[in-house]
Simulated assay, not measured.
Amino acid sequence: MLSALGWGALAAASLVVGALLALVRRWRDGVVGAVLAFGAGALISSVAFELAQEGLSIGSPTSVAIGLALGAVTFFLADRAVERIGGRAGGGAAGLPLALGSLLDGIPEQAVLGIGLATGKGVSVALLVAIFVSNLPEGVGSAADMRASGKSRAAIVRLWIAVAVVCALATLGGYAVADLAGGDVKGGIDGFAAGALLVMLVDSMVPEAKEKAGNRAGLATVLGFAVAAALSNLT
């Protein structure tokens, strides 16, 4: 169980690292956009080769589809709530959609990591690296937006530490309930993570990457996808 917590903390730590990198200095929009695009590509690969594929291999198509729908609707409704709080252009909620996406996809994603450890499959290196690589630009992009909107450094760091702690504990939770969860439940968890990720990517991450990186966003996205896909096929 301690190993599950350790691996979960390692994967979630990149969220805080990304936020700290954004606070150390002001990065040019082009750099932030390229990093976001790279992370988006890694997440697309994670959805395709880790979450959806694994979900269908251990659960029924129906359970994965239900999970996808629940994840998508959950992120959509939560994102709408964030917009009402401050609006993306109003400053108060700047960067929060990415933080919200990290939380909504990070919890089930890292629960999958814990389930794998508990069932004796060990750590999926591809999934671990995909989580780490995709978390980093989410932290950078979100913290940069929050900082630009006037949020204090302390408030930003506290937020990302809280998100990272919750995600790390999700790994522990997945480890604890692995014996109780059947294949359909595990498949649904994979689907939920994939659904939340896809909506976050289309609504928040990809548009922001394109806006900040311009035509380079597409190339960076393909590069991120290629790196993550190669890692998936190594395991």
Results as ranks from 00 to 15, higher is better:
G106W: 01
S3N: 06
D203C: 09
R84A: 11
V31H: 14
A12N: 00
A11M: 08
S152C: 12
G91K: 05
V157K: 02
Q53F: 08
V227C: 07
A194D: 02
A99V: 15
I66T: 01
K121S: 15
A196W: 00
E208K: 15
D105S: 12
S63V: 06
V32Y: 05
L172E: 04
L104Y: 06
M1A: 11
P97T: 12
A48S: 15
G116L: 10
R25T: 15
L128T: 00
R26E: 08
A12R: 00
G8A: 11
E50Q: 14
A170H: 04
G91N: 03
S14G: 07
G224F: 06
T235K: 06
D29F: 12
A229I: 05
A9H: 06
L113D: 10
I58N: 02
G92M: 15
S232E: 01
T62V: 14
A209D: 06
L180P: 03
L51D: 01
G106Q: 05
A42M: 08
A89L: 10
S204C: 03
P207R: 04
L56Q: 01
N135P: 02
I189N: 04
V125Y: 07
A176F: 09
I107R: 00
L113H: 05
V32K: 02
G141M: 08
M205P: 00
G91W: 05
N215H: 10
V157N: 02
P137F: 11
V140A: 05
A72L: 04
D190Q: 03
S57I: 02
E50N: 13
V35P: 00
G122M: 09
A48W: 06
G41Q: 10
D29G: 15
V47Y: 01
I131A: 07
P108H: 07
L172S: 03
A78V: 03
K212Y: 12
T171V: 10
L104K: 04
S57V: 02
G122R: 12
L96S: 08
A81S: 11
G183V: 08
S102C: 08
V202Y: 12
I44N: 05
A181V: 09
R84V: 13
N215I: 08
A209I: 05
I85C: 01
L197S: 11
I44F: 13
V64K: 00
A11T: 14
A99I: 08
M146F: 11
G139E: 02
V185E: 02
V157T: 03
G214M: 10
G90P: 13
A93S: 15
G30K: 10
